[in-house]
Structure formats: structure tokens, C-alpha cells
Design a protein around this nucleic acid. Structure first.
Lengths: 220, 220, 220, 220
DNA sequence: GATGAATGAGCCTTCATTCAT
DNA sequence: GATGAATGAAGGCTCATTCAT
């Protein structure tokens, strides 16, 4: 993940501050993926990063701060992903909704390890100040964006649904599929996850979506 | 929960084995609701129960066994609730689905403390052997029951959906609402949760459900 | 070990004080044989005896007293054994020494379980006040008896040994064989133990002992 | 044991890994000498070493590993002692046997504290996997060495003894004297212990040994 | 007499944090 | 910057002892 100085065999004695922090955060994510949020230790993180125990505290002062910054890091990555999907989607609400749905299944996000870390983090952090403080605003942004798209789509459709409730159902289904993929003993493949999600939106917007995705129409 | 001698102010020195175990399990649930699954300590459980530390180990031997039995206790309570709802629903698939949906919002289940404990337990236990061992079979039963009801309902409807996917969307929405009620900073009231759930099923079965619930038809 | 009242299937509700104490002491010996002196618990003793936990304290007040009385019990058994051997030996010092040697290999003493308990007890108790207080005097008696016999035997022999040292060598060899039988991975059989002991005394008293035991002489 | 900076009164905050481990092992030996093997606690060991509780686990991970390494340490010390005695003894079997006997009474080994620790360790560890695993092979080496020397000596003598039994008697006597010195209320001095040992071997090899030791012969 | 629930002290172990080098 | 030894608080567990029934 980091490639640097000429002297390559020994661990680089000096690293830019940011590179070290990123290295430690990535190690934290990896450790969470393996052991779960509440079981990781600083020793484990340091060993995963191939660094010394004390360095963790040097860079992050406390364990809680490390975890907090890891959460932000993970969350930013997530947000940037759906924002870029959204930006690429154009003005059509159907295309925008489709973009949001597909964003969560992007290969860079929907990785084994990433997923494990993210879900573990999410489930053990939800409802605690740490999470609300840092991700509450982002969630809000995601949710209101989703809701606005849904409202526009409902206006286009004949479906007489409440935008708040419909947007919520879509969000819950999307989140739930991620949880399923992590917690089920024999999880279904991502493709089936996406199909499930489309089954949900197709029920609300049958003119725009089918179980296999966004319907391509001649004239919109 | 305890009924005994006139000298009532002091905690009774002796209790039947079962009563004490139940008392400790209830204290465990309360402690989980407050601190979360991975943060509770035996000391905390004992203090919540107003008993000594050693007594917990006397009755449950290890912390893990205590948590395991608590999980079973909680899960049995949950299962008995939806089973009795289902039993009262009669043969119609729409009524049966409605029963399953309303079951999760029964006042005896959908309590502040109960909800907190259950969600914390559920989210931190899912995917671990402990959970699969004890609740996997029950979950299976719930899911297959749900799926069968949905299949019958789809057959009655004109809706061309995949029963597996549709049943999954409904389950994820239902579970997600519980999580919302626990983890959101400003959660919506249970009534709105139920409305959300009906918004979901109404999308799939508009002839049977509306956003306010099961549609009463002339002739069934 | 004890068989009593008419009502035979239920554990006899009332036992004579002494019978209960003996029952508990025997259970203690058995538990020590299995787990070792420093690992036994009162719960284990009670379970071995088939009695309730609290009864142990009722009869012995503290664990230490139970162990102390068990030591006395075991020691008395041991002492009575060699005393009866000695009494049966007649006046000849060679026969008396032979009696002392054979006494330790009497089947009633040299049992698997007895041996285990005795050695475990002995090795973890030696040098502590508990042991010296209760068994010191007996040991003294045994040792001085042995020494006196050896002295008479040396007087009969041409061997110019110091009775104290010779008696000590015999005692150490005898004790050591017991330890060997307990601690060796592949211990030799009791018969070889006895042969070893005779090899020892034969070295000191070749006219009286051979490696197979006391030499029977025409005229003594 | 530690030699360092001018600021000498405070315990040095940092020590080389090996030095600390040795310091903790020595503290363990001291604690065993005082309290006995099965009674020591890590707290006691730490206090004896003047260090904190947690440091013990930092260096040895578990109590059992600490005891295991202490056993090895003690045993190596013991083995090196008799091996160096043996190496200095020359080829004569009588001199070699004499070396083995005297080795156990070397002042560096036969110390008050050392003796106490060793005997406590030995008597409570014998027959347990821990001991057999680590010292079984060494014991074997010692015993077979002793037996071979005895066999050669018997060949030289007119004494018709079984080498296995004779070597065993000598070993038991030697071990027993150590136990005596530890467990007796009024133990005899080491010199008398050695005399006892010589009384034993003199009985088997009167031409080579007297009660005061190896007989110096004109021509060998 | 007898039972077993209840208590609490003490142990081993883990681990975030500190700090000398 | 970086290391890893050192500390100490806290948790789970064991178990002798007490005591209501």
C-alpha cells in the first residue's frame, strides 16, 4: 500500500506523518475484519502494520482516537464512492437512484475484508456518540439525497407512495443486504444481493426498474 | 417476579434455582441494553441484580454460558410471540403475513429495554458460532415460513415476483426498522415503523395491503 | 464403605458422627489420590463422598482441619501396620528389621490409591507445621525403633557401621522406593522395590540378608 | 546481578530482556523456597523481584510458562554442576562415583534457598507432564551414567550385587538426604549428609570407600 | 443433622497507557 | 521519530466459608 525510500529491506525509519497514519488505519481495518471491533488490541494493530507497539500511541494518542479516525477514513471512502457514482449518473432520478444502488456493490467497496470491517464497525458503533458525531451528518446527507430522488421518481410514476417511507425501505434493504453478506452462514453472492435490491425498487417503480436493474427506455 | 416472605426489604437469601437464574438473565438483558453486548461485565450484571459477583458463576459457571442462556431466553420469547400471532391468524396467507409483521411490534416485545438488548445482542452475535448454534434453526424456521406465505400470496396476486427475493426484502425491512429504532438519534415512533413495513408489503401486494395495513375485503 | 439403616436406597439421613467423618476422610484421600494435595476442593471431596458441600464444614469446620485429620488417619493406619508387623516378629533383631521392611509393602498399605494419596500428602506437607505437629512424634518413634534394631544387628555382625547412618540409609531407601513407585513414568513392580530394599540391607548385613530377603539360618 | 548507571537507588526502568527474565526466575526460585511450589502467586514473585505484577506476564505470558522455565533453569544449573564434577574425575569408576556423590554437596548447589526451592519443585512436580517433558531425559542420563559407573565398580570388586539395584539404592539415598535436609525439623549438617552417603557406598564397595569418603590407595 | 444458595477475597490474565532509551 | 519494557487498573474465575431453610 505504501511504496517509498531507496533503502527497501529495512522498515523505513522515517515516514511522512500521513503515510504512517494511513498505514496504521489500514492495519486497524484489517484487524477489525479479522477479530471484530470489540476484540482488537493495539498490539494486534501494531503487529498487523509491522510496526512497534508504542508507535500507535505516538500517532493517535489513545485507542479511541485511532478508532474514531478509522471510522472517518472508512466513512469518507464510502461517501466518496457513492458521490462519484451519483455525479456520473446525470439528471434523471431513475438513473440517480440506480447509481446509488450500484455504488454499494462497487468492487472497491464490496470486498471481503472491507465489508467485514465496515459491518463490524457499524454494528458496534451505531447509536454511540462516536458514530453519531462523525457520521451522523453524512448519513443525513445520504438519506436526504435518496429521499429527494425517490420523491422525484414518485412524481414521475403513478405510484402513490410516501417518499419518506419508500426511501427508508430502500435504505433498509440495502443496508440489510450488506449485513446478510457478512453474517449469514451461507451468504448469497453479491449479484443476488443486487437482484434483491432491484426486486425492492422494482416493486415501487415498475416502470423504471426490473429485477435485473434499470429499464432502458427509448424515450424518457 | 419474586413473591415471598413478610420480611421483604432485604434480598431473600434463598431462592429457587430457576428464579435466581431468571433474575440473573433479566439483569443481563438490562445490562446489555445499557452498555452493549461487548462491554458488560459480570460485576455489572451482579450489581444490576443486586447480588454478589460469585453467584453469577455459581449459577452459570462462565460468562459465556450466561450470555448463551440469555440469548436462548430472549430468542424463545421472540419466537413464542410470533408463533402465537401466526396461530391466531387463520389460513389466509395475507392474514398470516400481516400477523408476522405485527408480531414484531407487540408491546411486550417492542419495549425500550427489550429492543436495546435484543438489537445489541443480535448485531454483535450474528455470524458467531454462539448465535448460529442456538438460533440458526429458529431463524430458518421463521424465514421459510415467511417465504412460503409470500409464495402463496404471490400466487394469489398478479405480481410476478421471486418469492425468495420478496420475502428477503420484507425481512430486511422488518429487521432494519428495529435497528433504526435503536440506533437513530431521533427515531421515529413504532407506529411509523409499522407504516414503513406496510409501505414495503403494499408495494408487492397492493391488492392485500395498504400503507395502513391489511386491507379488509368483502369476501375472503 | 459403610452399610447401615434399613432404608437403603436414599442416602442415610442420619449417620453416627464417626461414620460420617470417616466417610469424608476416605473421600478426601481418594480426591487427593486423583488430584493431588494442593488441587483438591471441598466441593470435590463432597461429591466423592456423595454428600452435600456444606456437610464438610459442618463436620470439620475448616478445610485445614479436614486435611489435618486426614493426615492423622492415614498416619495411624501406617503406624498400626508396622507395629503389628513388629509385634509378630519376635525378639530377633534381624527378624524385626525384616518385619519393618516388609510392612511397607503390605497389600493393605501398598495400594495404588493409598500410595498416591500418601505420597502426595507427604511430599506437600513435609516440613510444614501441620505435619511436624502431628506426625513428628510418630516418625521419631519409627526412627528410633529402627535405629535400635540396627544397632543390635551391627553388634551381632562384624560390620563396623555407625547405627545412626545405617538406619538412615535404610529409611531413605525405603521411603525413596515409595516415591519411585509413584513418580516414575515406568515404575518397577513392588517385588523389585522390595528386592532393592533387600539389596540395601544385604550390603550392611550380609550374614542376615540376601537380595531375596532374610536368610533363614539353622541356628539363630 | 545488575550493574549500571550512576543513578542506582531506583530500580532501573529498562533492562535487557534476558537480564529481566533471569531476575524474575531468581525471584520465582526465592518465592518457591519460602512458600512452596503450589502456594506461590505471581504477585508474590513480582514483589520479591521488586517489579510490577504485569511485567511477569509480559516476559513469560503465563504462570505455567514461568514455572516451566524456572524448572529448566534450576535443572540446567544442577546438571552442569555434576557434569563438571564428573569431567574432573578422571577415568577411574571409583573417582567418578565419588565425584557424583560430592557434586550434590557443592556449596553453590547445596544452599539453604536453592535446596528449598529445588526440593519443593522436585517433590511437587515429579510425575507431572511438566517435569517429565523437560527433565526426564536428563534424569535418564544421570541414572544411566550412575548405573554404568556402578557396574564397572562391581566388576572391580568382589561384591556380587545387581548394578541396577545398587545404583538405585545410592540414588535414593542421595535424593533422600536432600529431602531430609529440607524437611527435618532439626536436620543434620551437610557434612553428616555426605557421611551418610559414604556409609551407603562403603557398604557396597568397602575396598574403595569408607565412611569418610574415597579411600586413597597407593597404586590404582 | 443436612442442604445448597450466597458471599467475598484472591488469583491469573489482558491490555491501554506511559516513558526511558 | 521509533522502540519495547514497564505499570496498573479491571475483568473472569475459583473456592473456602457462611448461613437461611
Amino acid at each position: 500500500m505504501t511504496d517509498e525510500q531507496p533503502n527497501s529491506d529495512a522498515p523505513p525509519r522515517k515516514q511522512s506523518r500521513e503515510a504512517r497514519r494511513t498505514q496504521l488505519i489500514e492495519a486497524t481495518i484489517a484487524a477489525i475484519a479479522v477479530h471484530g471491533y470489540s476484540r482488537i488490541t493495539l498490539t494486534e494493530v501494531a503487529r498487523t502494520a509491522g510496526l512497534s507497539h508504542g508507535l500507535v500511541n505516538f500517532h493517535f494518542e489513545t485507542k479511541e482516537k485511532l478508532l474514531g479516525e478509522t471510522l472517518i477514513y472508512l466513512y469518507d471512502e464510502y461517501r466518496q464512492n457513492w458521490e462519484s457514482y451519483l455525479a456520473a449518473a446525470g439528471p434523471s432520478p431513475a438513473a440517480q437512484l440506480d447509481a446509488l444502488l450500484r455504488a454499494d456493490f462497487d468492487p472497491s467497496i464490496c470486498t471481503q475484508g472491507r465489508l467485514a470491517a465496515w459491518c463490524s464497525f457499524w454494528s458496534e458503533t451505531q447509536g454511540r456518540p462516536l458514530y453519531q458525531e462523525r457520521c451522523g451528518a453524512n448519513d443525513e446527507k445520504y438519506n436526504s439525497g435518496m429521499q429527494e430522488i425517490v420523491a422525484r421518481l414518485l412524481a414521475e410514476s403513478s405510484y402513490p407512495g410516501n417518499p419518506t417511507l419508500v426511501a427508508r425501505v430502500i435504505r433498509l434493504t440495502s443496508d440489510g443486504i450488506w449485513l446478510d453478506m457478512m453474517t449469514l452462514n451461507a451468504p448469497y453472492p453479491p449479484a443476488e444481493g443486487l437482484a434483491t435490491l432491484y426486486a425492492c425498487v422494482a416493486a415501487f417503480f415498475p416502470r423504471h426498474f426490473g429485477e435485473s436493474g434499470l429499464l432502458q427506455r427509448m424515450k424518457s
